[in-house]
Amino acid sequence: MKTILIYDGSFEGLLSTVFYIYEYQIDQFSVVKTEEYVANFFDKKEEIISNSNKANRVWKALSTKISANAKRKLYKAFLSELPGIENKICHFIQLAFASKYKIEKDFSNPTILEISKVVKMVDREKHRMDAFVRFRQTKDNIYFATIEPDFNVLPLNSDHFRERYADQKWIIYDVKRKYGLFYNLNTVTTITLEIDEAINNKQNELTFFSDTEVEFQQLWGNYFEHTNIKSRKNTSLHIKHVPKRYWKYLTEKKN
């Protein structure tokens, strides 16, 4: 019989779940988020309460078994939000605790290889957001961008943008997950906003954004067109690098 472990969807919650697995020596388990849980007749269910103390103990203990880099990879894998990723993370942690060696580079183990592949996908998405964020300057001089990444990568982007745009206020807002990052010239904080649908309409641009904003967008669009070499046209390569789902947030591809 399998035990369904239900957690609140936070990383702390997941680590608390790992603690629970060891505390009660659960053998067969499946970890799901509260909102994903569907009752069935055969399995036992347990609701896990997030506990920062327990989560910290697991996280600290991991340091004796794997590198800091590998721990970060587990966090990144968690941000993928892929179905079933929690189970793989738990299995990875069990492997790490059970082994005398650092297991993180054993790419012949399917769980470890799988985690490394998911991390690669998350890293790629993070890098895409570093590239595809397009700020627009608002009337009150905040550089504002909306994104809709495949994975929940925004927390990973924070340092990059803080270091780069140290002298301008900016907001990057994840429309899909309904939260954003705001930099106020000193620190980055997590915020939630009511976003008016109208901000993405071309004709409303001047209501929200600075006088020169539209001009610079045009200059950029024009540059983008003129730096293209027509006799080398390669649409499939273009789409491979800039998949269509991102186009609506890219100034140069919007029209």
Partner: peptide, 20 residues
């Protein structure tokens, strides 16, 4: 606290229709 940073890896912000 100036503008910009070129400390890390390169970033391709977009790709033209020729795939560059």
């Amino acid at each position: 606290k100036g503008l910009g940073n070129s400390d890390g890896m390169g970033i391709c912000h977009s790709y033209t229709e020729d795939g560059r």
